[in-house]
Design a protein around this nucleic acid. Sequence first.
DNA 1: AAGCGAAACGGATCACTGTTCCGTACGGGA
DNA 2: TCCCGTACGGAACAGTGATCCGTTTCGCTT
Lengths: 190, 190
Amino acid sequence: MTSPRRRDVKRNERALLDAAATVFVTSGVDAPVREVAAAAGVGVATLYRHFPTRSDLVVAVYRHQIDALAEAGPALLESAPTPFAAVLSWVHQFVDFLGTKHGLGRVWEGDAAGFTALHTLFVERLEPVLTDMLRAAREVGEVVAPVTAYRLIRAVGDLVAFAPHDPAYDVRQMVTLLVSGLQQPQPEIN
Amino acid sequence: MTSPRRRDVKRNERALLDAAATVFVTSGVDAPVREVAAAAGVGVATLYRHFPTRSDLVVAVYRHQIDALAEAGPALLESAPTPFAAVLSWVHQFVDFLGTKHGLGRVWEGDAAGFTALHTLFVERLEPVLTDMLRAAREVGEVVAPVTAYRLIRAVGDLVAFAPHDPAYDVRQMVTLLVSGLQQPQPEIN
DNA sequence: AAGCGAAACGGATCACTGTTCCGTACGGGA
DNA sequence: TCCCGTACGGAACAGTGATCCGTTTCGCTT
C-alpha cells in the first residue's frame, strides 16, 4: 500500500531511472553510484533511498525487457517448429538480453545467497516460463536430462555475465552446447 | 636471467606463499592483500613487489595443483573406459580444483582481456591437455560438437567460479550437462 | 670490522567505491 | 503563511587495491 508520493520523490525517481539507463549504456551496469547520482542531478543518499541496492536499480531500469522475455516464452512455444527449438530460441533471447548489459557480472554475482532483486525477478518471471517450455520438450522426448529451469537460468547467466571480451571465445556457442546437453541422458562420472 | 636473490627476498617470498595458502583457505582467494601481508609479517608493498597482481599470487600458491591436473589428463586417457569418459572425468577434476578455491570469482574475472597469470597458466598447461583428450574422443566419434578446449575451460571456469552457494543449485550437474552437449551436432537457432 | 651502494623494506597515503549520517530543504495540508 | 514530516545532499566513514618515499637491510669490497 503506497502512501501518496510527493512531487519531488517522483521527479527524482524518474531522473534516476533515466540517468541510470544512460549511464549503464556508456559505463556499464556496474558504474559507480556517484556517477548515476550525478547524472540524475541528485545526491547519492537519494539514489540509495529510491534503490537500496544496485540490483534494485538494475531491475527498475530493465523490468520491461525482462517482462517482454517472459512473454516471449509462450509465443515461442506456439511458433517454433518443436518445443526444444523454442527452448533454445528463448534461451538465446535471454543471452541477448544479458549480453547487452555491460558490466553485469558484478550485479549478477552480487549476493552469495542469491536473493537480490534481479535474482528474485528472474525466479518469479523467467523460471516458470522456462519450466513450462522444458516440460513441453520433455513430453515429446526432446529433453531428457533432469535439469530444472532454475539451474539452467543460473548457469546461462554465469556463462554470459562473465563471458570474456575475447574473439577466441563465443558465448553463444557455449550456451548452445549447454542446452544441447539437455537432449540426452546424463553420463555418469567414474 | 635472475640475479642473485638476497636472503631477505627469499625469506619474505616464502613467508608470503605460506601465509597466502593459509589465508586463502580461511578467507578465500580474494582475501584483502593487507590480510595476507599481515599474516606473512611483511608490508603490503613487499607483497606487491613479489606478486604484482592477485592472479600472480594465486598462481604461485596453486601452481603444483594445476601441474598435477595437467598430468592427470594423459593418465586418464589411458585408464578411462572411453576417451569421452576421460574428458568428463578430467573436467570434473578441474571443477574440484576450482571449487575448493572460495572467492575465486573475482580472480577469475580479474581482467577483461583475460591475460592474467591464472588465465595464461591455464592456456599453457591445461588447454593442450584437454585439446588432446577432445581429439581422441573426436576420433572415435564420441565428441562431435566443434568446441575448442579453450572455450570449454573458460566456460567451465565461469560455471564454477560463480556458482552460488545454494542447495537448489548443483554446479557439477551443470558442468556435466555442458560436457554431454559435446556428444552431438549443435542445433541451429532460428 | 667498517663503509658503501643498491636493493628491499613497510606503513602512511592516495584514489576509488559502497554506504551512512545528520543538518537543511521541501512539499503539502491546515 | 505556518508547521511538520518526509526527502534531500554532500561530507564522512569504512574498506580495498595500489603507490610513495624515507628507512633499513644485505652483500660486497676494503
